[in-house]
Amino acid sequence: MKSIAFNPAPLRPLALSLLVMATPFGAARANGEFLQLDVARDSTSAVASVERSRLTFGVNYYNGDDGQVAGASVLYRLTSTWDGAPVNLKIGPSLGWNDEDDADAETEFGLKLTADRWFDTEFGGLYVQGDVNSVDNAWFLIGQTIFTGPGLTLEASFGSSDTYTETTLAASKRLGTGPLSVRAGRRFDAGEWFIGASINTF
């Protein structure tokens, strides 16, 4: 997330919540489920997503020193093509709930648009995703490099809105041949390291 003119620390829970909601699911090109939990020194975040046919249902939760945030979205997939490869376009309503320690709880409805594409490579694949959300005029970009052999994924993400900014680097390692992975990374604007785990059945 890019920097802004004022200190976004009081709004950190919303920032991380939007990051979690935008978390991609690797080469998510079929029905499946995605669960993820990240833990930092002063915060915990969780996300779940279920895709059935053309619908994707997502929920998230964040809890930190300065408050807690929850969100949900329902997106409808419109598959297109670009250079002969499928591009997933998803659109639908989004909901955000923010309960900061020093303010009244707020609920906001919005509209979210997501586009993602998977690129096959000799070593595995590349995955890119971009999101825009009318809630706080948020945007988010993420890129992943997936090494199929060792089960390793490297990712970088950037995002911003009217109220936050964040840049994240992370790596994850699949355990065996199952859907479970462990991960770790750094949120640079928040100034924190995190560890986590995910289950991905896509």
Score class of each variant (00 low, 15 high):
115 A>Y: 03
170 A>Y: 11
132 V>F: 11
85 A>T: 13
47 V>M: 02
32 G>W: 07
56 T>S: 11
67 G>L: 01
120 D>C: 04
33 E>L: 09
186 R>C: 02
2 K>H: 07
141 L>M: 02
197 A>F: 09
50 V>H: 11
30 A>K: 14
82 W>L: 14
167 T>M: 09
150 P>D: 02
133 N>F: 09
43 S>W: 15
21 M>D: 06
21 M>W: 03
193 W>N: 15
181 S>Q: 12
32 G>N: 06
49 S>V: 06
105 A>F: 08
34 F>T: 06
51 E>F: 08
121 T>E: 09
112 K>F: 13
106 E>T: 01
138 A>P: 08
191 G>L: 03
113 L>D: 10
8 P>Y: 07
60 N>A: 02
32 G>Y: 01
183 R>G: 02
193 W>V: 15
179 P>G: 01
161 S>G: 11
66 D>N: 06
143 G>H: 03
103 A>V: 04
135 V>D: 10
127 Y>C: 05
105 A>P: 10
150 P>Q: 08
118 W>P: 06
181 S>E: 07
191 G>H: 05
163 T>L: 13
161 S>A: 02
168 T>W: 04
190 A>H: 04
51 E>V: 11
106 E>C: 02
104 D>V: 09
202 F>E: 12
42 D>V: 11
68 Q>W: 07
15 A>P: 01
107 T>W: 14
35 L>R: 10
52 R>E: 14
147 F>R: 02
160 S>L: 02
165 T>S: 15
106 E>Q: 12
182 V>Q: 12
40 A>P: 01
94 S>H: 00
198 S>D: 13
40 A>N: 12
194 F>E: 10
129 Q>K: 05
55 L>S: 09
38 D>G: 03
66 D>W: 02
